[in-house]
Amino acid sequence: MSLLEARHVTMEYDHRTIIQDICIHLEEGELISLLGLSGSGKTTLFHVLSGLALPKEGQVLLNGRDITGKPGSVSYMLQKDLLLPHKKVIDNVSLPLILNGMSRADARKKADPLFAEFGLEGCQEQYPSSLSGGMRQRAAFLRTYLCAIVQTEGTSASESSALKRTSRSGARQEADGQDRVMRTAALLDEPFSALDTITKDQIHTWYLDVMQKIDLSTIFITHDIDEAILLSDRIYLMTGTPGKITHELHINPVRSLRKEFNLTQEFLEYKRRIISILSGLH
């Protein structure tokens, strides 16, 4: 059973089919990306996967449970960082905990140790407006992560230790024989698209690092081919109007060995293949 699965999802807006018969799946611990030109319905698919939009046909399953049209089970980082301007960074980040009924003080206590892990140390008491674009993305990503923790707790009581473990040792979860992977998924919609190239490079490295530590199963949307190859185990290519999944690629090198992967011949091979597929379609 896959962690998250879309089965034959078709979605319409105003009698226009946006995405058609989409079948994708995400396994535990996997990082996959959804690569496609703009307008191919990637964000629409995310809205369906997150439960925000009800598809015309098809189902979304999380751990085999039908969550179609039910938001709140999957963690979703939208394209904009959407940090609330009136809340300090730490209150923004701990919002998922507060929404789940935790007191503000407790939520702050849980979130605080993670700031160092996410490279946000010292930003706790600042307002989002004083953060740089890269820092805002990190904060939004930390919020997404905390949301995933809350949702893991919500889905099964037996794994309620995830948060305790996290708060004790930062995001580094101990290999104590327990299932290290959280049983929920995160959806990231073009998380790095607003950043300039240098910031982007830095944040890619940081992202791979952090993902190694937190083991969050993730699908992310990108239209940047390099980014897709660099950051994923698997790539779905989505093209056309209405959008369909046309190809699926496995990226072989283990993620932890990807530091300079984008300078290798192998990387270029992947890139060439993707470009030829995308240009062949047009």
Binding site: H47, S50, G51, L52, P71, G72, S73, V74, S75, Y76, L78, Q79, K80, L82, L84, L95, P96, L99, N100, C147, V150, Q151, G154
Partner: peptide
């Protein structure tokens, strides 16, 4: 921003 509301809903608010 409608997306802020979407985000809140996605977080189960």
């Amino acid at each position: 921003d409608p997306d802020a509301v979407n985000l809140m809903r996605a977080m189960g608010a």
